[in-house]
Nucleic acid binder design. Structure first.
Lengths: 166, 166
DNA sequence: CTAAAACCTATGACCTACTCACAGGTCAAA
DNA sequence: TTTGACCTGTGAGTAGGTCATAGGTTTTAG
């Protein structure tokens, strides 16, 4: 009821009209960014979004800045940044420091990780195809107390040691 | 004290001497297979391993069969089989059915997954390298209320939709 | 022979990054 | 005014383990 600071800007307008100044509730922000409303609540709890709260009804209110932060967070997640990293970047931006040098570093690191992942998967793929070919000639057989499934037991064991994170 | 069925076979012998009939406690089995003792306990709770229990002290006792199952489980996990799948394979083997046909199916499926993963990662890698090249020319700048980090905000958004599982 | 070290047990919490379910409060349209 | 759509916070669930805790047992050193 109280107009106060919580006037609505588009409630009935199309959510993709982002030129106006927005005052969004959870679902509106979520829709605008294309995410689950629970993700908005989760990010808010985690401190990535900083909505204001309407004391009348205890609702959260998000603005264009939150939308920018949310879209940024989703892009960064797609690039492989962890939530703590995203929060760190956003906090740096809040303090008027440029987060970009850090982003470059983490990004380089992430690129290296991606390339290592690709290598490992390609090796795995190669070994799988080799094994599949070899299995063409092997009978299925019945478990005999010594062998559970020769397909897997005869698998060559040189797998990438994925768990070491130095 | 009671020698009973729980005589020890190697306790002092080298754990890699697997030709003898083994009677192992948790840590011995874990060491023999190169896994964490908690993983042995976890797999036991999950029904992948079926040790006998010494009623005197309530300890679990594992034999060569368990070692084989554990090693099999680890290999299957490396190949991308889930724990329920591994358990299913082991149970089939227990019932004297050959699990191999099922293994072949799941394996084919898994190979397709791996190839899809590789494709996605290669696309990601390509976009990352493109972005890195483009960023060479971009200044870092300081957050100005409109931009958090142009490196990420200017990222092109066409990411693989990984969450869809058909 | 005894005390400490090293092992065993079961249970529950923790990890990631959300997603879903629930109970109860608020609000807009019909 | 009722109904349905939204909001709130909390807690549980996902996969595959890993770690912590408290308390019991066994082995080893002195």
């Amino acid at each position: 009821m109280a107009p106060s600071i919580f006037g609505q800007a588009f409630h009935t307008a199309a959510p993709w009209n982002l030129a106006v100044l927005l005052d969004m509730k959870v679902k509106e922000l979520a829709t605008a960014a294309g995410v689950n409303p629970d993700t908005v609540r989760f990010y808010t709890r985690e401190g990535l979004l900083k909505p204001t709260r309407n004391p009348d009804n205890n609702y959260q209110h998000y603005d264009t800045e939150d939308l920018r932060r949310l879209r940024f967070a989703r892009k960064a997640r797609q690039l492989g940044f962890s939530l703590p990293e995203v929060r760190q970047i956003l906090d740096q931006a809040d303090d008027h420091h440029s987060p970009c040098p850090m982003v470059r570093d983490v990004f380089q690191q992430r690129l290296a990780d991606v390339e290592r992942e690709i290598d490992e998967l390609q090796q795995l793929r190669k070994r799988m195809k080799t094994a599949l070919a070899a299995w063409q000639d092997m009978p299925d057989g019945t478990p005999d107390g010594h062998t559970i499934c020769r397909l897997i037991e005869h698998w060559d064991d040189k797998a990438p040691a994925k768990q070491v994170e130095e």
